[in-house]
Amino acid sequence: MVRLLATTAPHPSWNLLDDVGQLLHYPFMRHAFAAGTIVAVLAGVVGYFVVLRQSSFAAHALSEIGFAGASGGVAFGFSAVYGLLGMSLIGAVLIGALGKRLRGRDAVIGSVLAMCLGLGSYFLTRYQGNASGAFSLLFGQILGISVHDVWIIAICGALTVGLIAALYRPLLFASLDEDVAEARGIPVRALSIGFLVIVAVAVTAAVQVVGVLLIFSLLVIPGAIAERLCRTPGRAIALCVATSLLFVWSGLVITYYTNFPVGFLITSFAFVAYLLARLVPSSSSGPVERARLSPDVSTKT
């Protein structure tokens, strides 16, 4: 697609309205912006919890399990998206059922995802002549998205954001303070499985934009940035959404005027932003400094 565009040689001008008109002139760019925007919002909302619950490895695993499903879908002649969704949902329930806490399950998840990646590559060889299909699954295909795909992504987005809103407070409680949440009657085990199901749906949408291998750039990095910078969960989620929108939009704009692949641009912006966030010092003093400032820290009763 990008190559084709090169013959028409688009250039940015100083007239922003013109630029927007030019960017949205082609249907494939309109689809890309629609899909990218929805995915940025849903990934921002889900991604904060992925980081808070320290389940970024599980999110990565789900995308690779989904890869096996998608390539299986292509090989056996039904849709890649449904294969992706189906397999990552099954994976979500299995990983969730493995245990209350995902920490310490790395080896199990790792073995399963390696197997799935292998299975995916097998399916792809069975389906002759689909190297580009494999490439778009692994690295995203946002410039080749159809109206049908946009609808699927929109449904995924409404589903994940709606579910997170419904589960918001108990999920936050269980993510920050699992033992107390359990004692307070919150079904932590079911929530853990439910959250992974949400991640599976989010992965299905995000894979269309950034692909299986680059999923971290939208599902983890914005969350990691927000976790480092924000004092309240509400602000953190807002920042998550804002940063992922920024990554996706600037990626799409730059890819339109240059030949750089979108996935590369999005991951680069995300990574640079993460590095910048790490440079921001913690704004308040730690316990040590406070103790130095006021000697009566522990005598207050």
Binding site: A165, A166, R169, P170, D177, R184, R231
Partner: peptide, 20 residues
């Protein structure tokens, strides 16, 4: 980086469904 008061808030409303 979450503020300590966020933990305290959960003790009051953390068990309720919905976004609050």
């Amino acid at each position: 980086r979450l503020a300590g008061t966020e933990l305290v808030k959960l003790g009051l409303a953390g068990g309720r469904w919905g976004p609050g």
